[in-house]
Design a binder for these strands. Sequence first.
RNA 1: GGGCGAUUAGCUCAGUUGGUUAGAGCGCUCCCCUCACACGGGAGAGGUCCAAGGUUCAAGUCCUUGAUCGCCCACCA
Length: 917
Amino acid sequence: MTAREIPKAYEPQDIERRWAQAWFDEKLYRADARADGEMFSIVLPPPNVTGSIHIGHMLEHTQIDIIVRWHRMLGFKTLWLPGMDHAGIATQVVVERELAKKGLKREQMGREEFERRVWQWKAESGGRIKTQMIRLGVSCDWTREKFTLDPPLYRAVMEAFLRLYREGLIYRGRYMVNWCPRCQTALSDLETVHEQREGKLWFIRYPIAGSSETITVATTRPETMLGDTAVAVHPQDERYKHLIGKMAVLPLMSREIPIIADDVVDREFGTGAAKVTPAHDPNDFAMGQRHKLAEIDVMTPDGHMNAAAGAYAGMGRFAAREKIVEDLNSHGLLERVTNHAMSVGICDRCKTIIEPRLSVQWFCKMKPLAEPGIQAVQDELLSVVPENQKKIFLDWLTNIRDWCISRQLWWGHRIPIWHCGDCGSMTPAKDSRVEVVNERAQIASVPEKCEKCGSGKLTQDPDVLDTWFSSGLWPLSTLGWPDETEDLRTFYPTSLLISGYDILFFWDARMVMLGLHLAPGATIEQRIPFRELYLHAIVRDPHGMKMSKTRGNVVDPLEIIEKYGTDALRFALTVMAAPGTDIALSEERILSYRAFANKIWNAARFLFFNLGKIEAAGVTLDELAAPEIRAKAPYATRDALPHQWIFSRLAAVTAEINDALENFRFHEAAHVIYHFFWGDFCDWYIEWLKPQLASENREDAIATWRNLFAAFEYALRLLHPFMPFLTEELWHRLPQNAAAKSISLQSFPAPLDGWANADADRGVAALQELIIAARNIRAELKVDNKKKVGAELALKSADARRLVEANLDVICRLGTLSALRVRHGELEAGEGVVRSMPQFDLRIQSGGQPIDAKAETAKLKKERARLEKDIAAKQQRLADDTFRSRAPAEIVRGLETTLAERRIEYQRIVERLAQLE
RNA sequence: GGGCGAUUAGCUCAGUUGGUUAGAGCGCUCCCCUCACACGGGAGAGGUCCAAGGUUCAAGUCCUUGAUCGCCCACCA
């Protein structure tokens, strides 16, 4: 009995904590590679170990969890593989900040000590994330949890690097890269974000050598002029043609630099003459290559001017800018300054303005890797949802550029290449084997001597790999690649990837390219890392702003969970997650789904409460919880209609949910189950059955109860992927499930043949319409809620008659009517308010309540006007021969019937109005 | 400079292939603490679907143009 004494309000906190822990402790979601059945596998986009999980993860995890629980219940051999990402630069930046608070710098403590600190951070952050995820109830297989720096994954990264290196797809070279002076590392193009900023354009006069003439160039970064090695003009530019080949004198440096002609110079921009700084601008670098210009780097890695900057050496780059402008001005070489909107490259991680910088880096050739990816997408071997993202994906793959994969960081996978101190050539590790030193993975096969000159003076390349290089291998590395493990054979390619569209290029595309290149298998189908890609929306704050720590608008999911419960938050996120549009999360929304959880809780409470009563009446729980309860419903009862109807609804709702989830239409699925539970099940089905639950007819009561329980249990399973905790808790309280392990291991419910019942659907719809009309009139007449009033009903068909006669009790009870006089055909004249419906005419007696004739008249007139307009429009439609000939017959017929009905309604309103006046 | 998305009720948003009276949640109005639930029940009000053209028998839905807002990509000094 205690199981049935349940609190009046649903308090999710303890229940959720308990189940979350139980699922974890029991390793409930461990996947068995050897199990039977079709496979469904998915990898978790590994959260960065930079801090903790935010609401965006929550959305992602909820969607994945819904899909995963659904598949598991559908009988798939299901694996959801979790893990975390070391997140190279992101984590390093966070830890550096932490250290800075204590006045510490990584340079002072050295590489080893710094790494130790980061590992410490990783332990805390990773632990926090795992705790959060467990609390969120994600049904992943924690026994397979992975981290990108785990030895086996480290090895996978080494293996991938070495293979690509040997194939010539990874190369090292001196190129212009995005350089963050704060992080002091190269960044990829993707890690450099561009911000539109109001800047200035400085027009600077460069004197022509041996002449009094000057040439004016325009620049947004005057400090780079110290490294100028040419001035460029367009070859066809008449203004400057005579200067081509002459020398200009670089102001402040007194260096002579050539005036060259190059097509890339835009005659329209500025003065049409450009200063050329090959060491500090990508365009200029390319130009420098073409014209064999010197490359003068005038800055240090941390963004200060270096010795090459002459008098400005040692100054910060922006201070130098100011000073240079000032000096130019005092020399009369500053022609003018204009405002200039421009896009500035920013370090994605620390928001410092990046500096294009010439440096030696490692790159990955992308064209050959992208091509199979393009083919996979074009041939639909990888399907992309939503569809419009496919084009974005293809465009990016098509216009791809080489990827700078080296980072001058300390946190990450060290590049397995050794440089010779004697001849300078490179020697790779012999193989990808990894050893563990101080609990940390590092490459094991250190080469002993230089491949080229045999020297023993080898030092390992100090750089680490871009963090996305290792994430790009995630589906492979987490399943054991390069070994052909059982997991890899069983679960690769994974079935699906769910990720945010904001990391489509960073991660999804890299996985596709690396997977297709490295995975075993002869065909694209065998090598593709996932067969389907669903890109979810981004969660924003209530004002539509992207959540970020710097904006201070991040929401901690655990806070919300403590307030409203995980299920409520999950459901809110699900309902709002229509594909394609971003989500603005507000607490009100979550509140209404907490109410939903509470509603279901109370429906259950009602069932349990009555269970006690029926037990007291001598019916045993065994009788109610008969094993066939799920298979045979609905049981025959005296009043069959509500049961036929609710099971028909269940059949429909199941199909709708399956269909919606099939197409990642999470919001639709959530809406369907919400309205079923609240509307159909609680408002109608339970209300309908209330008297029958205590029926004196024992057999009948038992059958009714069985149906109610079966429907409820079925609905709980339908709801489970969306609200796992609530459903788990209630499901266990059902007598027949007391000893079962988990609802999540049960089958996703499927309707039986014969449940769909159009007659029952139509019948209940008509009765609902009738009851609502009665309530409506009562409300209008302001009849006291408890007071029953008399009513008359005219039936328009034999069907209507049967329906009403069989359900008089329900109509009266739910419509709060004292008696219902039923007649066939027309309603007799009498006192009260009349409503017309397709099947019935209903009059509710005012029961002594004075009828507000004015209000009634106004309402009827409004209705009459609406009908007049509607009827006119329909008549016109039907009078149109082109409509009749071109529209499908069923549309025409439908319109005709509706028109006929409207006319009758209209007629009654006219009559009623005449009465009132 | 390209590309994409949004614009529907007071607010936040649904609306798959064009088809009869455009929906939800919250908010609002009225009546109810009726023995599952006030995180509740019942009834209601509220929309020229951004604008202008067009296609069609029929447009919130398709096409064109424009407006406003937002996002992504791109080496305009």
